[in-house]
Design a protein around this nucleic acid. Structure first.
Length: 579
RNA sequence: GCCCCCGUAGCUCAGCGGAUAGAGUGUCGGCCUCCGGAGCCGAAGGCACAGGUUCGAGUCCUGUCGGGGGUACCA
């Protein structure tokens, strides 16, 4: 993000879309120094010049507010400071002559030559267009969904899936070596409760009058699961009445549940590199043993009231927390400490993103503290909380709860509104904002979801290229300097923004800019394409009798397709060639 | 009680200290004999409230009100 102050480019080697802002910041910085040296400005401390994008295109492509920040120290009106700096901006091939505007902006407009050159840049980069080097040489992991395998994924999990998958893709584009991980909670109390419920349902199938546990899972899917096990093993899991469930029942049930979770994510287009078993943390000499040993050696574990406590209050937490319950079972917290030791220390990730539902909020601070205590850098752990999804059916609130047994599954959502539309819908909202999800409305809106607007633009770009090919015209050899129409240049400008978007998303870890940008890019294309139509002039089309101009415009179409396909890909959506 | 997130257009949401606060959808009005109208252009309509910081606040700080979450030897 930091501008390369004083960065120079040799003649003939223009900066590309990745570095134009740094280049412009360098020009401003250089000009400000020259103004000081020349006596046009008093010798004041110069902050790093920031480069903004004006909201209104009339104010140029980029602007600097530096004069307003210098005005007080320089004891001059901001507009005068702006003029002083602007007059020292050197002639540069990337920009037209700068302008100053009240109350004290320096406005910069990109030259047509520079903009045209970006079309070649995009085509050259191809599928890697807008890749950044931010995370070069660094390993990142995004862990998301990680829902307990005690029930099917619900709509809320879908939000986590869409967010996590898009973040992983963007981090990859930003240069990180990225791994997607699902943490399988196959140990602990909820797994036990799951087993107890499953065994009760299983016994019921054989005519025994057994109740499911009071804190068990009442959902109908548990009956289906029991039936599946009966089909597979007949009465093989049955034990004499009154006895506990056989050891193999739990894992068998969890495996079945995981299969359905995997299938749902698969149909959502989300694929993982690693499915990490919580139980594996407890192998002898494994992550759990190691992490607890580290805490013990640091004197951070204390036996009290029959349980083992992590002395987190010594590290600034509100209170101590139990890591091993008085019944001898480790808590979820203990698992997570071991798991994060494993992520950072054993596997060596430089950046870890945990995508959690906001109901885990209370766990954030103490996990960061514990992560530091086992020897990792808590700053490298980013916990992204997404607010819960409030389900509605025709205005009526539906609470998401596996335990209540009432839920709307991700699979149902996918078959009702489609994976691409659902993802787009989830990604549009910032993770921190609660969202209402009216299922009836979603089904109705799926046909007019903005995702189709974006995909439609891609399909049209493809069909223009196809139509040209049929007429024997290709983008090859097109001269981009022929692209001078406002709508053409506007489309390139929009394509150039993708690098900004990736940088912002990768550093903020909030993906909502992706769908907004995608709509904006699609709109720039539609406006470009329609401008020819509205003009009702046959020379104003992509494919015209002027083959040189046609080839140039086809290069633009090709580049636009590349950019649009890229952003669709980052969101985990398909880029259809026809619809 | 204490802690955290969120209150922006009729509805669903962007906006991350800069110029006249944007988009989708909905409403109203225009535009194509078109390389795909699942399109383009325009209009109406809004920062919960009260202070503060700043040259500049939807954005940062404090408080009030409203919605949600957390505050377990559940996860």
């Amino acid at each position: 993000m930091s501008p390369l102050a004083g960065h120079r480019y040799a003649v003939g080697s223009m900066p590309d879309t990745r570095t134009i802002q740094a280049h412009l910041a360098g020009l401003i910085d250089q000009a400000a120094r020259a103004a000081v040296a020349n006596g046009d400005l008093p010798d004041v401390a110069l902050p790093e010049p920031s480069i903004d994008r004006p909201k209104d295109a009339a104010n140029g492509d980029f602007a600097s507010a530096l004069p307003m920040r210098l005005a007080r120290a320089a004891m001059k009106p901001p507009l005068e400071v702006a003029r002083a700096i602007a007059s020292h901006i050197p002639a540069d091939a990337t920009i037209d002559p700068p302008e100053v505007a009240p109350p004290g902006f320096i406005n910069l407009r990109l030259s047509n030559a520079f903009i045209q050159e970006q079309v070649e840049h995009v085509i050259r980069e191809g599928a890697a267009y807008a890749d950044l080097g931010l995370g070069k040489g660094k390993k990142a992991q995004v862990e998301f969904v990680s829902a307990n395998p005690t029930g099917p994924l619900h709509v809320g999990n879908g939000r986590g899936a869409a967010i996590g998958d898009a973040l992983a893709a963007v981090l990859g584009a930003a240069g990180y070596e990225v791994s997607r991980e699902y943490y399988v909670n196959d140990a602990g109390t909820q797994a036990d409760t799951f087993t107890d419920t499953l065994y009760a349902r299983y016994q019921q199938l054989f005519g025994r009058s057994v109740e499911i546990p009071k804190d068990g899972y009442p959902g109908e899917y548990m009956v289906d699961l029991a039936k599946a096990l009966r089909e597979r093993a007949s009465d093989g899991y049955l034990r004499p009445e009154g006895e506990a469930a056989p050891k193999e029942l739990g894992p068998a049930g969890i495996e079945l549940m995981l299969q359905s979770i995997r299938a749902a994510l698969d149909s959502f287009g989300v694929h993982y590199d690693t499915w990490y078993s919580e139980r594996s943390l407890y192998e002898s000499g494994g992550a759990y043993d190691t992490a607890m040993r580290i805490l013990r050696e640091k004197g951070l574990l204390a036996d009290r009231e029959g349980a083992l406590w992590f002395s987190s209050s010594e590290l600034g937490e509100d209170k101590d927390n139990v890591v091993v319950r008085s019944d001898g079972h480790p808590t979820y917290y203990a698992s997570d400490i071991a798991y994060h030791w494993d992520k950072f220390i054993r596997r060596g990730y430089d950046l870890v993103v945990d995508v959690w539902g906001a109901d885990h909020h209370g766990h954030v601070s103490r996990l960061k503290t514990a992560t530091g205590a086992v020897g990792a850098d808590p700053e490298a752990l980013h916990i992204l909380l997404y607010q819960l999804v409030f389900l509605k059916r025709s205005g009526e609130a539906v609470k998401l709860s596996k335990r209540a047994g009432e839920l709307v599954t991700l699979s149902e959502l996918i078959s009702d509104v489609g994976a691409d539309a659902a993802k787009f819908f989830f990604l549009l909202r910032s993770p921190g904002a609660q969202m209402d999800f009216d299922l009836d409305l979603a089904v109705k809106q799926s046909a007019e979801n903005p995702v189709f607007y974006v995909q439609y633009a891609h399909a049209r770009l493809c069909s223009i290229l196809e139509r040209a090919r049929e007429q024997g015209i290709t983008p090859d050899g097109g001269d981009v300097s022929l692209l001078t129409q406002p709508a053409e240049l506007a489309l390139v400008r929009e394509m150039m923004r993708l690098t900004d978007v990736i940088e912002v998303v990768a550093s903020s870890l909030e993906p909502q800019q992706l769908p907004h940008y995608a709509m904006s890019l699609a709109n720039a294309f539609h406006a470009f394409n329609d401008s020819f139509k509205q003009a009702n002039d046959p020379s104003l089309k992509v494919i015209t009798e002027d083959t040189a101009l046609s080839a140039a415009r086809l290069r633009l179409v090709l580049a636009a397709r590349i950019a649009l396909a890229r952003v669709l890909g980052l969101m985990g959506m398909s880029a259809p060639e026809r619809m």
